[in-house]
Computed example of a mutant assay.
Amino acid sequence: MRSSLLRLIPRGPTLLVFGVLLGLVCPALADLARPLMPATIFVIVLGTLLRIDGQAVVAALRRPSLSVLLPAVVMVACPLAIGAAGQALGLDPELALAIVLAVSAPPSSGTAAVARMLGLDGAVPLVVTVLSMVLAPVTVPLLAGWFGGLEISALELALRLALLIGSAEGVAFLLRRHAAPVLAAHGGLVDGIIVAALLVFAVATMAGIRTQIAVDVQTAMFCAALAFACNIALQIAGNALLPGTLPERLTVGLILGNRNVGLVWSALGAAASPRMALYFAATQFPIYILPRLIETLIGRHKQKAKA
């Protein structure tokens, strides 16, 4: 079992693409996995918190660009910019709100694991993700209230997010306090579990999506195109935000582009309308497909560097 999980890590980008496509091709499997979505979110967040390196956190906190600027950009500036752009483009209010909610989510809890799969620095996304998760119960409800249209109060959304994140933080604290040496010795296994949870989550997000696509192909394609456009735009912005080497800039791009939409989705529950759920599901395609393309880009960069 342990060796199987470890083997998932280098194949992670390809497996995540496979998970999305599997859920789309096999609706029954996606429906079966759908009830597991909150549990997979919990496991992914917990795994991320267990991978925290105290020294890396301290080093990052000493760099205002990582401890202050980047979380503020991720959790406040990006949602406001995307929301303003959606309103300027005259998007349907329901879809515009879905985009804001998706971008207001903290970085995907699997971003650090994905970064390590790609040979990038996993410490930076890990620290930024943890800091952003602390902000999420405050910033997400405020942004949702600012743009309006949700069938849930800001306070209830804040409490749901705090419960999801706080419970994972509590379990992580206990495990790190009583099993720190074991966690340090089996960090790769934790990454493998995160990848496995991401795979199940990817399948689960496709529940009901095939039916929605059949009913309204045009809207489904538009949501997918919009999801790719937002993710790519944020990744490009991340590449331009901070100076550094290509791997460093790609890491910041991943942080801005890949969001833990499932966290917000799970917190919303029934308050997420079918169209919002369709967009949330569409965001999974760039989250899981683009790392595979980034892997190719990194490979070519390394070949040029050797030449």
Rank of each mutant, 00 (worst) to 15 (best):
L155A: 14
L155G: 04
E156Q: 13
L159D: 07
L159H: 08
A162E: 01
L163D: 02
I165N: 04
I165T: 00
S167I: 08
S167L: 11
S167A: 06
A168M: 09
E169L: 15
G170L: 15
G170D: 07
G170Y: 00
V171W: 01
V171M: 09
V171K: 01
F173V: 11
F173P: 00
F173W: 13
L174H: 06
L174T: 09
H178Q: 09
A179S: 15
A179G: 14
P181L: 11
P181V: 11
H186N: 13
G188T: 10
L189D: 05
L189Y: 07
V190T: 10
D191S: 11
D191K: 12
D191E: 11
G192H: 10
G192S: 08
V195M: 04
A196R: 00
L198T: 04
L198A: 06
L198F: 04
L198Q: 01
L199R: 02
A202F: 11
V203L: 02
T205H: 12
A207V: 03
A207D: 05
I209A: 08
R210S: 14
R210M: 13
T211W: 08
Q212G: 15
Q212A: 14
V215P: 03
V215K: 00
V215N: 05
D216A: 06
V217Q: 07
V217W: 03
V217H: 07
Q218N: 06
T219R: 09
A220Q: 02
A225N: 09
A225R: 08
A225V: 02
A225G: 11
L226E: 06
L226C: 13
A229F: 08
C230N: 09
C230I: 15
N231K: 11
I232F: 01
L234P: 00
Q235G: 05
Q235R: 08
A237W: 09
G238R: 06
G238S: 12
A240C: 14
A240Y: 11
L241E: 02
L241A: 08
